[in-house]
Design a protein around this nucleic acid. Structure first.
Length: 585
DNA sequence: GCCGTTTTCGGCCCGACTGTTTTCAGTCG
């Protein structure tokens, strides 16, 4: 049973408790929801955490929920959960995915209209609305009836698609809106916030903050944005729209003197903010997007640093604001000094168009072009890492010939190139049996190899771990690329026994890749964080198949920062001589 | 149900907006 499935169940139990008696169960509800979020945010499966006695280390999971999950994984069900779930029809749960419908509304609809089939309830509720039945339910009216029809239609239009947007696309949408907002004369500052500012790999709603003394004017301007589908809501200081591309954009406006508080509030995350406000309470303060109240007086804060300072802690980089220990670290003045884009001195994962005759895709541009680009990025070194020659279409001797020729080409390139160092690498498939898809004689020609899984992705965890470790055991294998194989919104990827992988990496001086490709962002931040704590080294690579892909490096750095990476944990933040030495270790 | 540099008991964030309400419930972030 996956973390996603367990989280869904916990959320369902919480929803049932809200319906049964929200006041009575209030703190259990909050606890269950937090535990569910916590499970969704880790890439390590609950069953593994449980086996290692580490499930309770997840924030929001204590003795009680741990034992329920243990029972769930053992027996497939938990009587304590079933007790709550039996009080509500199962047909309410699909409705909870429709924006604007929460547990209470879902229950009323299902109860009054007698819609009891979970498989058809989404369509049934639209039918009931069209027949005018929804408007007759107490506390519902004509408007809410129409809202439900529209909400379901929007929900169905995007079902099956990625409901969150990849970070670069969200960046583009945000910058269009920001460009438009700046046209309003009262706007003094505009910033993208929320998960966009925290650099999450996928972004839900796009949050934007504006500093202005004319909130109404800015909001009137905002809702006239040209690429708009509809206005969701509009108030005195906030508004939300849906763009024609289907993205929700939330706007908040505050005067410049309170902008620091707004930045802090709107950046989140939810649990980071909740934790900060609890600390404020302990200090006799109360904080919101308007400022910090202390002894009856509201202190408006123009700078975000001052919000944290007033609470007695250091400013926290947005990427860390997930309530995963960053607040404690900030209070102790022990926040890590995170890696930055300017620390990056090279890129190891570049697919040029050199005719290596691979089974996977070749790059679009020449090695020479990539070198120029690397120099323009200020790199000290670069590694070429085309896929190995196809083993199904070449004999062993063919492959060795191709690789010798490539090696000679790279040697020639080296002798003609100043200002940057070149490493000769390859991205080599780890075959189903754990062997590398390149003969020994060809491997010896390389400075090092990137190894990765591209086939038989459904091996189970133990088998996949064994396979990866076997692939990594060759002395030339230095980097494990995109180590979970996930593609955001498309596939989950495979599971590895991370502790075993980490130990092996440390002992044999190898590194795990942080793949900057936005659809991958692989390793995931939770894996990076745990690896970093153990002392594992990482490499941030773009996996470029074209020149412009080399510009994706900042997304890799973002993800490394979310994993609490400092520059001393990143191989390609080291100087050339150190990297060259690392290749020989 | 979780959690701890005042606590293993007694706390538990803060606000915006909408619709159907005459003063608030539900949803969202």
């Amino acid at each position: 049973m996956s973390n996603t499935e367990i989280a869904t169940l916990l959320n369902h139990v919480a929803a049932a408790m809200r319906i049964i008696d929200e006041r009575k169960y209030y703190f259990q509800i909050v606890a269950y929801e937090k535990a569910a979020d916590s499970l969704l945010q880790t890439h390590i499966q609950a069953v593994d955490l449980l086996r290692e006695g580490k499930l309770e280390e997840l924030p929001g999971i204590g003795e009680s929920i741990r034992s329920h999950i243990a029972q769930l994984l053992r027996d497939g069900k938990v009587p304590h959960f079933e007790g709550f779930l039996s009080h509500v029809p199962a047909s309410i749960f699909p409705l909870l995915d429709v924006p604007g419908i929460g547990p209470k509304k879902a229950f009323k609809i299902v109860h009054f209209c007698k819609l009891l089939n979970p498989d058809t309830v989404i369509d049934d509720v639209v039918q009931a609305a069209k027949e005018g039945k929804i408007a007759t339910i107490p506390s519902f009216g004509e408007k809410s009836q129409q809202d439900i029809i529209r909400a379901v239609s929007e929900y169905k239009a995007r079902s099956g698609k990625l409901t969150r947007t990849l970070l670069p696309m969200a960046d583009r949408i945000a910058s269009d809106v920001i460009h438009y907002l700046k046209k309003h004369r009262s706007v003094q500052d505009v910033r993208p916030l929320g998960s966009l500012r925290r650099k999450m790999p996928t972004v839900g709603d796009i949050d934007i903050a504006v500093a202005s003394s004319d909130a109404r004017g800015v909001i009137s301007h905002f809702i006239l944005y040209p690429n708009i589908k509809r206005v969701i809501e509009q108030g005195d200081a906030t508004a939300s729209i849906i763009t024609s591309s289907g993205s929700q954009v939330d706007l908040m406006v505050q005067p410049l003197e309170a902008f620091g508080s707004l930045l802090q509030h709107f950046t989140g995350s939810k649990y980071h903010n909740v934790h900060l406000r609890e600390i404020a309470l302990e200090k006799g303060m109360s904080m919101s997007e308007y400022g910090i109240k202390h002894k009856g007086q509201l202190h408006k804060l123009a700078r975000e640093e001052d919000v944290y300072k007033m609470l007695g802690m250091d400013w926290i980089p947005p990427e860390l604001r997930e309530d995963k220990g960053e607040i404690e670290a900030a209070m102790a003045h022990r926040l890590p000094s995170l890696i930055e884009v300017r620390d990056i001195k090279g890129d190891f994962h570049i697919h040029s168009n050199y005719p290596i005759e691979p089974s996977h895709d070749l790059g679009n541009h020449s090695m020479e072009d990539h070198l120029k680009k690397a120099i323009s990025l200020g790199y000290e070194y670069i590694a070429f890492s085309e896929h190995n020659p196809s083993i199904s279409q070449h004999s062993k001797d063919d492959i060795i010939t191709i690789m010798k020729k490539r090696n000679a080409y790279i040697e020639q390139l080296k002798s003609n190139t100043k200002n940057i160092h070149i490493f000769s690498m390859c991205e080599i498939d780890i075959l189903a049996n754990g062997d590398l898809a390149l003969p020994e004689e060809a491997l010896e020609l390389l400075d090092g190899a990137i190894v990765s899984i591209h086939s038989n992705l459904d091996d189970d965890q133990a088998a996949m771990t064994k396979r990866v470790l076997k692939g990594l055991s060759h002395p030339k294998a230095k980097v494990l690329a995109h180590p979970t194989g996930r593609l955001l919104g498309k596939r989950e990827g495979y599971q590895l026994e991370w502790r075993e992988i980490f130990d092996f990496m440390i002992e044999h001086h190898k590194a795990i890749e942080i793949n900057a490709w936005p659809e991958r962002t692989d390793a995931p931040d939770s894996v990076i964080r745990e690896g970093i704590e153990k002392g594992v080294k990482f490499v941030i690579n773009t996996d470029s198949h074209a020149l412009e892909h080399m510009d994706l490096m900042p997304y890799g750095v973002d993800n490394a920062r979310r994993g609490w990476a400092t520059k001393d944990a990143i191989i390609n933040a080291m100087r050339y001589t150190s990297v060259a030495q690392w290749f020989t270790q």
